[in-house]
Amino acid sequence: MDIELILLSIGLICIILSFFIGKSTRKSEEEIENVSISLHQETNQLKKRLRAVEEELMIGAAPVTNGQQQQQQQQQRKQKPVHEIIINQILSLKAQGYSVPEIAKRSSLSNEEVIDVLKSRGVAL
């Protein structure tokens, strides 16, 4: 009989405590949600400011000639390696019979970059 009373009293205490603990976790969840929303808003504001600064820089830049553009594109290709997944995609598309411009469009690369990848892997054009 004593064990039953002890277990019953422990159960009642746990039920009462669960009401108080539940409220504090709800407050914590609300605070986390508010912080998340404010962080998202601040990130969006920073992106807008960054776009504005980029536009200002582009307006102030001198016009680039075709020769300079080609040189810049070649330098960017040399500096930025193509990821292995993209290379596999290019090889697969070439094996399926797609042309270089179609492969370039599907892989978001320039025709020259696609040609460079195919040549580096020994694929005949």
Rank of each mutant, 00 (worst) to 15 (best):
E102G: 09
G60S: 11
I87H: 08
R26V: 15
S18R: 02
I87V: 15
S9I: 13
A104E: 13
Q89P: 05
E33V: 05
E30D: 10
K94L: 15
Q96P: 03
Q72W: 00
F19H: 12
D116N: 03
A104F: 14
I37N: 00
S110W: 10
R51M: 08
H40M: 03
I103V: 14
R49K: 09
S92Q: 08
L50S: 09
A61I: 08
E56N: 07
L5W: 08
V35Y: 09
K119Q: 09
Q89R: 14
G67L: 12
G97R: 08
S9R: 13
Q74Y: 03
K23H: 12
A62L: 14
C14V: 14
L91M: 13
K47C: 05
L50Y: 04
R106A: 12
S9Q: 11
V100C: 12
I21V: 12
H83I: 09
A62V: 11
R51H: 04
I32M: 09
I90Y: 06
S28H: 07
S24N: 10
N44D: 02
S36N: 02
Q76V: 01
G122Q: 08
L91C: 12
L12M: 14
K27T: 09
Q70V: 08
V100Y: 14
S99P: 07
L50K: 05
S92I: 07
I13K: 05
R49G: 07
V114Y: 04
I21W: 09
E55F: 01
I86Y: 08
L12T: 10
L7Y: 05
T43D: 00
T43C: 01
S120F: 10
L57S: 05
G11I: 12
E33D: 07
K94E: 12
V53Y: 04
L91E: 06
A61Q: 05
L109T: 07
V114Q: 07
E33G: 00
Q68R: 05
G122W: 10
